[in-house]
């Protein structure tokens, strides 16, 4: 009996220590967010005091009012949604078709094309941004939505992901059965593959959406006018203008972080799953 309680209390102590360490870690992880949020509600005078106080003495919404008066953040937000939305849809469609073809068909040149895809997956986007940019200049696509969105229309990784998924979930027998029922190849794609790819399609969608949302160097190069800025560039330029007005800057940061946090809270499981899925196979 006494031995059991001893074991029990040892385990208990260990558990408490574990949680304590994890809680301290968690606090460190969230401090930047908390500091950002509370600063956003401080009047400017309160920002420049020492020692700094975490909570504002006289909380104010003024920073947010000023924010929207100084820069069209709603427009930035809409641009980000538009860019990420179109990018996500395009990547989903391309990956579905590409993944399907590469997993279920054999055709001459398949290996070559697949190798090409792998190469484009390895070389980082930023390293070939220069010729892409000169092309856009030549086409007159600078400062246009089509120019900003173009590089985000494809993602070779999406093809790999869906290729793997389709390969493991859809059997050749199922496809043959459909063919016997008179289903065309394209019909197989829309009637069988599409409905069965929801889960990995969702994971890929989340991944593609965030990828385009945090786009930085490309829109920085392409967007010349305020009305073309996405959230990231809009906030960057905003910080240039108000470089030391930290309460205002934090209000801007809060505005750009909140939508992502909301999405994360709602889709937390799917997002984490999508990351672990994307990590499973390189």
């Amino acid at each position: 009996m006494s031995k059991m309680t001893k074991d029990h209390s040892l385990g208990f102590l260990q558990r408490v220590l574990k949680h304590l360490a994890l809680i301290i870690g968690s606090i460190i992880m969230v401090i930047p967010f908390v500091w950002m949020f509370t600063t956003a509600f401080k009047p400017e005078v309160e920002v420049l005091i020492w020692p700094p106080k975490l909570l504002p003495k006289a909380p104010t919404y003024q920073n947010f009012i000023d924010l929207f008066r100084q820069a069209p953040f709603f427009r930035y937000f809409m641009n980000s949604v538009l860019i990420s939305g179109i990018s996500t849809i395009s990547i989903l469609m391309i990956s579905l078709v590409g993944g399907f073809i590469f997993s279920k068909y054999r055709f001459p040149g398949k290996n070559f094309l697949f190798t090409v895809l792998i190469v484009t997956a390895i070389v980082p986007f930023e390293s070939y941004v220069i010729p892409l940019y000169t092309t856009m200049v030549k086409w007159g696509w600078i400062n246009t939505y089509r120019g900003i969105i173009a590089p985000y229309l494809v993602m070779s990784f999406g093809i790999f992901l869906l290729r793997q998924h389709i390969g493991s979930t859809i059997s050749d027998e199922l496809m043959d059965a459909a063919r016997i029922d008179g289903c065309s190849e394209f019909g197989i794609l829309t009637r069988i593959v599409l409905p069965l790819s929801k889960s990995s399609g969702g994971a890929l969608g989340i991944f593609a959406f965030t990828q385009a949302w945090i786009a930085f160097m490309w829109p920085l190069l392409l967007a010349n006018k305020k009305e073309m800025f996405n959230m990231e560039i809009g906030l960057t330029m905003f910080q240039y203008r108000f470089s030391t007005n930290y309460s205002l800057l934090m209000a801007g940061s809060v505005i750009s972080v909140v939508p992502m946090i909301i999405i994360f809270v709602v889709l937390r499981r799917q997002i984490i799953e999508s990351i672990s899925l994307t990590g499973l196979k390189g």
Binding site: G85, I89, T190
Partner: peptide, 17 residues
């Protein structure tokens, strides 16, 4: 997934306008 695509396409058109 099909419905998801068509709904999001619709939303985007509205946004674009």
């Amino acid at each position: 997934m099909k419905r998801f695509l068509s709904i999001s396409a619709l939303v985007l058109v509205v946004l674009a306008v």
